[in-house]
Design a protein around this nucleic acid. Structure first.
Length: 796
DNA sequence: GTAGGGTTAG
């Protein structure tokens, strides 16, 4: 007889399809058992061919067996299974259900719904109790509330409203669509709740952020003597993790032991994660060492734990020890570096990953790496990644789109950011928001507002991030009326409750416009306790408008909330300096020295052909140092002969000798970087520089002059990241109290200020971030800063 | 005669 090694045959079908004369004999049973033993698609196809030749395929049961194997096997090919299905002349309900199920698992769950509709039209069958869980799963994956509701209605009409399997799927469906109330309504109406009903509701609450409710439900479950299982524990542990409640987490671990709940790999991993996220890497390590079975999640959790703690060497040793390196393990380290303000290290690991044979970068790698590129202004690497995404024909999903827009915007290339934005079909709220931020960053406040309305027309609902970006756009373009309008509309019209960031933005808008009294009145009316960032915004405005008295008040309120906020002290000292109160300046500086507050050292970085060059002030460590300094001399001479006078008042420090002041200014890291840029870039290449702190007024002016004198585009971004076109005098005035030097035909060199206006996700407190963002520092000084997290745009 | 629900990281 034929065996699996029999070559594939051509398919002249001999059997009469209409008459299933296949006997249930031994030979056929053997063939059917071969289906289960197939270990490759090729073997399955051989059985298929044999069945066609003998006519066995036209037996409904046998055909469905083959088809099911095609959809279930690890080597499953949905395309092949679909072909098999299409060959089955009269598929039975089981076969239809199997196809619906196959698609509900696939990346195209909408096919499930289409197949279901086809079944209703083409077949004599109605859905049974098995059909609905598959359909509801598809609706869940599609996140389409309406679709699931239709199925729910059908369930009730088809009298399956008591089936606990179906109702449990519905709980899961409603919860994952965010409708926890409805999920709970389904839950309470189940007469005979089983453990899965409870688990579905508990994990629904956890995923919806209602951790208290999840734990309450767990207690209720206990009170009703429903025995929990490992899945229950995963849900409850996950709630502890999110609440960072180590004590309760430990209690759950002992509960698991006492109640003899069987540990499985997922539960162990959930425990590991709880320990790591609640701050006890030691406990996690103990558990990790005891675990008999570990998978990639276990390893990744440990790497992530150590990396987030800043113990990078330990994290790396775990990475090296992973039995099978996968992309996720690399991603853990890359994203930890990225999010802890170590973008260079993130890129270094990325390069190692590229050299590694075991794994290749995936979407998540690119998202983190693009964020690091954005932080560093490393546009060459960013562009390389963009090209790679295209080359790999990787699906440009919303996460990647957002990251690309963010990267190009922050690297100063608004056009490319817009290209990406226009090239995609799918734009979620984060894609729109990042583009709004990009426009705002480049001083295009009106365009940012227009985009907001286009987003509204596209029926994408704005969220808190969108409003922060729109308000920032108003603030940076001096659009006071528009800012007021958006702020007043956000809750009543768009249902977004103003948060601390929005209040701070509003104070910033009013303050920058000189409406200091109104800003103070606004602060008094804020229904929540004003955060440090709100006072920071007021303080910033006081600096612009030289209101020393109010500045002192704002500063003391800020320091009550954040005694460690060195930025506030630096800003206040700048205000004193600007108004000539040198005694107060030295007193403040002394206070900072005593309390150990130190300024972060300023640096500027510049990327040339994918290599990053970093400069400190008066740096001479660069291999081309000699050439750089001679270029700098040349620049200084050219500037002088063109009539530029160094604005020494910008050096807000007590330096006595006039020429020392001038020299100190000329050695600023951004000037070194520009000099280096002039000798290392081709004639048409722009110079793109990123500064970690603020760019001083002199460097700002000089950058523009050099741009003209050398006919070179210069993009200079600092930690406050807004691009200002030379032409936009008004916007300039909002940032600097003295008017810019206006040159008739100056090339549009841009100065980017206001880094990271987009709210960040992650462990850095938002308030802290916002106060950093809004405080900034005065031109000429370099304030210390707190770690900046680069990516953005979407909530984890 | 075959089948269905809930879980961990990034």
């Amino acid at each position: 007889m034929e065996t699996l090694s029999t070559p594939l045959v051509s398919l002249p079908i001999q059997a009469n399809p209409g008459a299933p004369t296949v006997k249930n004999d031994n030979r056929n049973r053997l063939v059917l058992s071969l289906i289960d033993r197939c270990i490759s698609l090729k073997q399955l196809k051989q059985v298929h061919a044999y069945m066609l030749r003998t006519g066995l395929f036209f037996d409904a049961y046998s055909a469905s067996k083959l088809f099911t194997a095609g959809t279930l096997s690890p080597f499953l090919s949905l395309e092949y299974a679909r072909k098999v299905f299409d060959e089955i002349l009269e598929p039975n309900l089981y076969t239809w259900n199997t196809l619906i199920r196959a698609y509900s698992w696939s990346p195209e769950p909408s096919e499930s719904v289409k197949i279901f509709l086809r079944m209703l039209c083409e077949s004599p069958y109605f859905p049974n109790k098995f059909t609905f869980p598959f359909l509801i799963k598809a609706a869940t994956k599609l996140s389409r509330l309406g679709v699931g509701q239709v199925f729910h209605g059908l369930v009730v009409k088809s009298s399956f409203g008591d089936d606990v399997f179906i109702l449990n799927s519905l709980i899961h469906f409603y919860a994952s669509c965010g409708d926890l109330d409805f999920a709970y309504r389904v839950f309470v109406r189940i007469d005979e709740k089983d453990v899965v009903s409870w688990n579905s509701m508990i994990s629904g609450y956890v995923q919806g952020g209602c951790f208290d409710k999840a734990l309450e439900l767990f207690r209720e479950m206990e009170a009703e003597n429903v025995k929990s299982n490992a899945v229950t524990m995963v849900g409850v542990l996950s709630a502890c993790t999110k609440m960072k409640d180590l004590e309760f987490g430990r209690w759950i671990c002992s509960y698991i032991e006492q109640n003899g709940i069987k540990m499985d790999l997922t539960l162990s991993n959930a425990m590991l994660d709880m320990y790591v996220k609640c701050g006890s890497v030691e406990d996690a390590k103990k558990l990790f060492d005891k675990m008999e079975e570990k998978d990639i999640v276990s390893w990744t959790t440990m790497i992530d734990g150590y990396a987030k703690l800043g113990e990078y060497d330990v994290a790396k040793s775990f990475l090296d020890a992973v039995p099978r390196q996968e992309t996720a393990t690399w991603n853990a380290l890359i994203s930890a570096y990225d999010q802890n303000g170590k973008p260079q290290e993130a890129l270094a690991i990325f390069h190692q990953l590229q050299l590694s044979k075991n794994a290749k970068p995936d979407e998540l790698t690119f998202v983190s790496t693009l964020s690091s590129c954005a932080q560093l202004g490393a546009m060459d690497v960013g562009e390389w990644i963009h090209a790679n995404i295209k080359k790999q024909r990787m699906n440009l999903n919303c996460h990647l789109t957002t990251s690309l827009i963010d990267m190009y915007s922050k690297c100063g290339n608004l056009e490319k950011a817009l290209d990406v934005f226009h090239s995609v079909e799918r734009r979620d709220v984060f894609v729109w928001s990042s583009m709004i931020a990009g426009l705002a960053m480049h001083g295009r406040g009106r365009a940012a507002i227009d985009l907001f309305f286009r987003m509204h027309e596209a029926k994408v609902k704005p969220n808190a991030v969108t409003f922060t970006n729109v308000l920032c756009a108003c603030s940076h373009s001096g659009l006071v009326e528009e800012g007021r309008m958006f702020f007043n509309q956000m809750e009543p019209v768009y249902g977004v409750v103003p948060g601390v960031k929005h209040y701070a933005c509003m104070v910033d808008i009013l303050g920058r416009a000189g409406l200091l009294e109104e800003a103070v009145e606004f602060i008094e009316k804020i229904p929540i306790t004003p955060s440090a960032s709100v006072w920071g915004a007021l303080l910033g405005a006081c600096k612009i408008h030289e209101n020393v008295e109010l500045a002192e008040q704002a500063c003391s309120r800020l320091l009550e909330l954040e005694p460690e906020n060195d930025g506030a002290l630096v800003l206040l000292s700048n205000i004193y300096a600007k108004t000539g109160k040198w005694d107060n300046v030295s007193e403040l500086r002394k206070r900072m020295r005593v309390s150990g507050l130190q300024k972060e050292r300023g640096w500027s970085s510049m990327e040339v052909n994918g290599t990053l060059h970093k400069f400190l002030a008066a740096d001479n460590s660069h291999p081309l140092s000699k050439e750089i300094y001679s270029k700098l001399d040349e620049i200084v001479a050219k500037l002088k002969s063109s009539g530029h006078v160094t604005n020494k008042s910008l050096l807000l420090q007590l330096v006595d000798e006039e020429d020392m002041k001038e020299q100190a200014l000329n050695l600023h890291s951004e000037k070194l970087a520009i000099a280096f840029g002039l000798i290392s870039t081709g004639p048409s290449q722009p110079i793109r520089i990123v500064k970690n702190l603020r760019v001083c007024g002199d460097c700002h002016t000089v950058a523009k002059l050099i741009s003209k004198l050398y006919d070179k585009e210069i993009l200079l971004r600092d930690r406050l990241n807004i691009a200002i076109d030379v032409a936009s005098t008004i916007e300039y005035l909002h940032h600097h109290s003295q008017p810019p030097m206006v040159h008739g035909d100056l090339k549009p060199s841009k100065v980017l200020l206001d880094h990271d206006m987009i709210p960040h996700v992650g462990d850095f407190g938002l308030a802290k971030f916002m106060s950093d963002h809004l405080l900034g520092t005065a031109p000429g000084t370099q304030s210390s800063s707190i770690g900046i997290k680069g990516i953005v745009g979407y909530v984890a």
